[in-house]
């Protein structure tokens, strides 16, 4: 897929923007009123970052990965800015484990999750990519499979592993 010479960013910009819009649309699946602007703003911020960083991207797949990473950075920063870290640190381990398993994941978890994800990345970068695509960019199993060029069944199993690893990491050692 990737060329020897990546095409200039300008040529890819419309494509990339569409892709980001698609991700934004996913964010708005539930069609919450008033969320359109925010999701678009988020996507835009991600786009500006990518353009600013001058990261050369080779193709759409590569780009989706970069975009998911940008989403992760932005959302984690937002959660940090809201003092999420402090609230997370204030939880004791028992409540923590309970809270983690609940579907209503709290933004409070994000900074700690981000750090755990960094540790996971050091061990297995592919796992961290998968988490970014699944959790931060909100891609489905099939879409992740497409983005990583592996089978959906493999994605499913690796996702289970990543979740288990991160869950243990967070419930064992909440970062202060």
């Amino acid at each position: 897929m990737a060329d020897d010479h990546p095409p200039p960013a300008e040529d890819l910009a419309p494509l990339v923007y569409d892709e980001l819009r698609r991700i934004a649309a996913r964010y708005m699946r539930r069609e919450r009123p008033g969320q359109t602007i925010q999701a678009t703003a988020l996507v835009h911020e991600a786009y500006l970052r990518l353009a600013h960083a001058g990261t050369p991207w080779h193709d759409k797949r590569h780009f989706v990965g970069i975009a998911a990473r940008a989403m992760r950075q932005i959302l984690v920063e937002r959660a940090r800015a809201r003092g999420a870290q402090k609230r997370w640190a204030a939880l004791d381990r028992v409540t923590l484990t309970d809270a983690l398993a609940l579907p209503a994941a709290d933004a409070a978890m994000l900074p700690a999750l981000d750090e755990a994800l960094n540790r996971l990345e050091a061990i297995d970068p592919a796992q961290a990519r998968l988490v970014e695509l699944r959790y931060f960019a909100g891609l489905s199993i099939e879409e992740v499979a497409d983005a990583l060029a592996i089978s959906p069944a493999t994605v499913k199993r690796r996702w289970a592993l990543a979740r288990a690893w991160l869950f243990r990491e967070l419930s064992d050692s909440p970062s202060a």
Binding site: R26, Y27, R29, R30, R32, Q35, Q38, A39, L42, L75, R78, A79, T97, L100, A101, L102, P103, A104, A105, D106, A107, L110, V131, R134, Y135, F136, A137, G138, A160, L161, R163, A164, W165, L166, F167, R168, S171
Partner: peptide, 21 residues
């Protein structure tokens, strides 16, 4: 951990915490 993880990370962050958008 997997058996205890429940819904952990199952819902994409933007769906779980829409205020972050």
């Amino acid at each position: 951990s997997h058996s205890r993880a429940g819904e952990f990370l199952q819902q994409a962050i933007a769906d779980a915490v829409p205020e972050l958008l």
